[in-house]
């Protein structure tokens, strides 16, 4: 089901709440919030039919700043709250905002199950590779050996790659974008909004206080064109300011190739966002330090019935005249009369 259209033309300001935004100055979250508020009126959905749900963490304050319905829930559990909402009212467009700690540490279980069920919820995971709200401990996406307040000798944990987690859960929409590239982020968010089923978007987000520059190469305006490999369906994997680098397959591994601009080799990988999850998984292996590149864009998007849609179908199939006769239900199959 789709949300009902907005009766009047809405503007960006209609989606700005009256609350003071309380993120740190320079936080990447501001840009994401602005992108969302800009995108919303273009979707043609009445704002009363939009719900933002979140867990705990800096990212999870997001719903307070959107002038839609919103629910700031408890740590890690937002996917379960969102699932209840969408099952109860499939007419709502439900967005879930989470972070690398909320979504992948305490809430990993719920995220897994939301994605594998394909509940129609748009999930935005702000990844800054650090715990911000608790002031600087390592997160499940922190690089191995990272020195933080809680890991003075360096972390021992192998980091998780959020997109691999989503792909392993058979998510039907998997994408990545970067907080500093507003145009790209707007495109990815719009595609997530229009996807039917669970949409998973990892947003590289800079925590200026506790982990500044975590994604510097792909964030900085000076370097990002050299690093961001922008995925486009049906187009070869070419990147670099001079458009002189690309990827092809060598055995089962991606291989970096450089070439004369305008003359790419014919065996470059052509992006196919409808391909099996194993292809998208291969793309997630393109990352520093092995490669001087990070793919952004839609890794995978496939059409499958959403959980809420299937639930409604079961209810519709069970509907029959007199099927909700309470007196008959209370009586049960065997009764007797006492006179």
């Amino acid at each position: 089901m789709t949300a009902t259209p907005a009766p009047v033309k809405l503007e960006r300001k209609d989606f700005v709440s009256d609350q003071i935004v309380r993120w740190c100055p320079g936080c990447g979250d501001y840009a994401i919030l602005a992108s969302m508020q800009k995108l919303m009126p273009t979707l043609g959905i009445a704002k009363e039919n939009v719900v933002f749900v979140s867990g705990i963490g800096c990212s999870s304050r997001f719903p307070y700043y959107m002038n839609t319905y919103g629910f700031h829930t408890i740590h890690g559990r937002a996917p379960a709250f969102a699932t209840g909402m969408k099952l109860a009212n499939p007419n709502l467009q439900v967005w879930l905002v989470t972070g690398d700690g909320d979504g992948l540490s305490i809430g990993g279980n719920h995220l897994l199950h939301a994605l594998r069920r394909n509940i129609d919820v748009k999930i935005l995971l702000f990844n800054n590779r650090i715990y911000g709200l608790t002031k600087g401990q390592y997160s499940p996406t922190s690089e191995k050996g990272k020195v933080t307040k809680s890991s003075p000798a360096g972390t021992l944990d192998r980091p998780i790659v959020p997109l691999r987690f989503a792909l392993a859960a058979e998510a039907t929409f998997v994408a990545r974008t970067v907080d500093t590239d507003v145009q790209h982020m707007g495109m990815v968010l719009e595609r997530a909004a229009k996807h039917k089923g669970s949409a998973f978007v990892e947003i590289y987000q800079n925590c200026i206080v506790f982990n500044d520059g975590a994604f510097a190469d792909v964030e900085n305006r000076d370097t990002r064109d050299d690093f961001a490999l922008k995925l486009e369906h049906g187009k070869p994997l070419i990147f670099g300011k001079a458009r002189d680098k690309g990827f092809r397959m060598k055995g089962h591994e991606p291989e970096l190739v450089t070439f004369e601009p305008g003359k790419p080799p014919s065996d470059l990988i052509v992006h196919d966002e409808k391909a099996g999850a194993q292809y998208a998984y291969m793309l997630t292996q393109i990352e520093p330090p092995e490669f001087p590149a990070v793919p952004v864009g839609v890794f995978r998007t496939v059409e499958e019935a959403s959980y809420d849609e299937l639930s409604e179908a079961q209810l519709a199939a069970a509907k029959k005249p007199g099927g909700d006769d309470l007196a008959k239900l209370l009586a049960g199959p065997e009764t007797w009369e006492v006179k």
Partner: peptide
């Protein structure tokens, strides 16, 4: 959590 979401 799902019950609370549905209740909301």
């Amino acid at each position: 959590a799902s019950a609370i979401g549905a209740s909301f």
